[in-house]
Every structure is written in C-alpha cells, then in structure tokens.
Amino acid sequence: MKKISSMLAIFVALFVVLSIPFPAFAQQKNIILATTTSTQDTGLLDVLIPIFEKKTGYFVKTIAVGSGQAMAMGQKGEADILLVHSPEAEQKFVAEGYGVNRRLVMHNDFIVVGPPADPAKVRGMKSAVEVFKKIASSNSLFISRGDNSGTHVKEKAIWKAANIKYEGEKWYQQTGLGMGQTLNVASEKRAYTLADRGTYLALKKRLDLDILAEGDAILLNIYHVIEVNPAKFPKVNAAGAKAFADFMVSRETQEIIRTFGVDKYGSPLFFPDAGKRVENLGK
C-alpha cells in the first residue's frame, strides 16, 4: 500500500507541474528584433514594444545582444529587424545586401566614465582622443566591452585615432558582457570605461562612477533601424519588420522617446531623430 501511495504522490506532483498552462501566444505573427543591450537595459523597449504589439497584433521577440551580434544574426537571416548603433558596420551590412531601408531613429552620446578620484586626471577634458591617451599613459585600468557591440566599435575607433596599442596591455581588460554589466565591473574595479549615456543614467544610482569626459563630436551615438532583406532571406517576416520600423520612426513613438526617462533621471536618455540627416545631429 505504501508503495502505491508514494507512486501516486510522484504522479500527482508531476501532474501539477505539467498542467500549468503555457501563456497563449499567436505564433504566426512573430517578429524577431535583434538589438543592443542599451535599448533593453534602459527600459526603453519595455515601454515601446507593448504599445506596438497592442496596435498591430504582432508579437515581438526581443533578442538583446551587442550590435555586432545583432548584425551577425541579420546576416544569417535569423532576425527580421535590427535596432543598432554601429553606423559604419551598418553601412557595410546594407551595402552587402543583407539589410534594406536603413532609417535614423534617435541618438544620444557616449561618455567616458571613471572613478570619482580620477587617477588619470581626465575630468573635464574635451577631446575623447586626448582622454584615451591620458588613460593609457597613466596605466589606469580601462574596462572594454570586448563584444563587438556598437560601443566597443566606437571605443576601438577612438583608440585608433589616438594611435595607441591597447590589446594585451595590462591596464586594458575586456568583459565580453553587456553595457550594464560592464559598468558594474568598471565601478567595482575603479576603472574607466566608455558607455552610452542612456545605460549610464539608468544605472547611475548603483554605480561609483562619474562622467569625466563628454561632448566630443566623435562620441555621438546614433541608432538606426534596418529591415533584414527579404529578397535574400525568404523566411524573414518582411511585413512585420516594416511595421516595426515604421512604428519606430512614427511621430507618436518619437514623442515617447523624447520624454522617456525625464521623470526618472531628470534628463532624456535618447533624442528622437526620425527624418533628420545624420550630418546635422548634435548641432
């Protein structure tokens, strides 16, 4: 009898686990959005996507990775739409025929953040290149994303402009993580890093990092939407991708972007730019 009741107990337990229903979702109207960690870590997409889903009936699967990985997904046709911030790589992506209809959505800027004590003495410097030179020459620890994200690509461009060899140097470390986690690492290690302003502001209360340099033209951080080319990848949800891109540049969405974060952080995290020209940004 004991055996039977114990067997019964197992089956009851399993039955309880298995009978919890999956939340129901429309499977046909899926859109895979490959995007950067900054749009997720700031909470912007948590605001925008429910509005889009309600409006159109699509279900958006947001895969938040670095811009590099997002474009790699696009190159295999594993994503339908990209929201990324790595302009040079994006141009190459479109030129090679992987993406179509690249449109400007918004911008903010990159900032150099570091420990309040500022061992490299870069606070208030204007030129990002000079800041990087000073960090290197003072052997101050610099934490890099190291994940080929938009931020990482920008960082490498600045090192290149400063003509500094950084790879393999003792003061240079790579996390391979998203922006939020990299900021946490930099804060713990009292190190410098390059961050997008949005993620920094969203995490600021937990970080022991100050903005030490900002405002240089090279630090502009520009986000585009790109639809993955349906002519190249027939399985892509082209209609859904277009609907999402249209939504991102629509007047209503741009208005939400303009005010996003103001109530919480005192200043906007992103500046809406739909329909503008890249050359005129930040002026």
Binding site: I49, F59, T62, I63, L183
Partner: peptide, 22 residues
C-alpha cells in the same frame, strides 16, 4: 529562449538581466 519578456524569461535569465540593469 532569448530571455523574451513575458514569453521565454525564466528565473535564471531574469536574474542575470536584472543584475545587468543594476
């Protein structure tokens, strides 16, 4: 799973994400 909000987000993936968000 992709850690998609309200769809494929489980306890472990949510923990990592919230840590990243601070």
């Amino acid at each position: 799973g992709g850690n998609i909000k309200g769809y494929s987000r489980v306890l472990t993936t949510a923990t990592v994400m919230e840590t990243g968000k601070g």
